[in-house]
């Protein structure tokens, strides 16, 4: 890897890192979910500064080309994150379902109460105006 490429990558990684922090700062991303991404960025940064690591790791894992190992690790990382997102989506949609059902039931209750109030109001002939 040439020094030029190393510097370009380092700059890109730093920019992405700042964007990530910025998102957390503006509360558009939870720290809990940002942590794996931070770990990834830091890991990439270390590899960028010490490219020798990949060669040694690849040899250790019995993979001939470091690039293949990086692909494998990248894919594993992505699939892991996607898996957790899938299961999170399910959890969220289940919670959402419960809220929607509760809302439907509550709205019915409120409408019935209102109707009963209206009937009472008509009988007493004075209440309904104040209750609007």
């Amino acid at each position: 890897m040439t020094l030029r490429l190393q510097i370009i990558l380092a700059v890109v990684l730093v920019i992405v890192f700042i964007m990530l922090i910025n998102r957390i700062r503006k509360e558009r991303l939870d720290i809990r979910f940002a942590l794996p991404w931070m770990a990834l960025l830091i890991g990439l940064f270390i590899i960028d500064v010490f490219p020798g690591i990949t060669q040694r790791l690849a040899a250790l894992m019995g993979i001939e080309l470091p690039i293949n190992m990086l692909m494998l690790l990248g894919l594993t990382f992505s699939i892991t994150i996607i898996f957790f997102l899938t299961s999170m989506t399910f959890n969220e949609s289940d919670k959402q379902k419960q809220v929607i059902q509760e809302l439907g039931l509550l709205r019915k209750e409120v409408e019935e109460l209102k109707k009963r109030e209206d009937i009472k109001g008509e009988v007493k002939d004075e209440r309904s105006v104040g209750d609007e």
Partner: peptide, 13 residues
Amino acid sequence: NTINLPVNLGIGG
């Protein structure tokens, strides 16, 4: 006698 769901939940929901 109706319950109106604010969002479409599908048959199960």
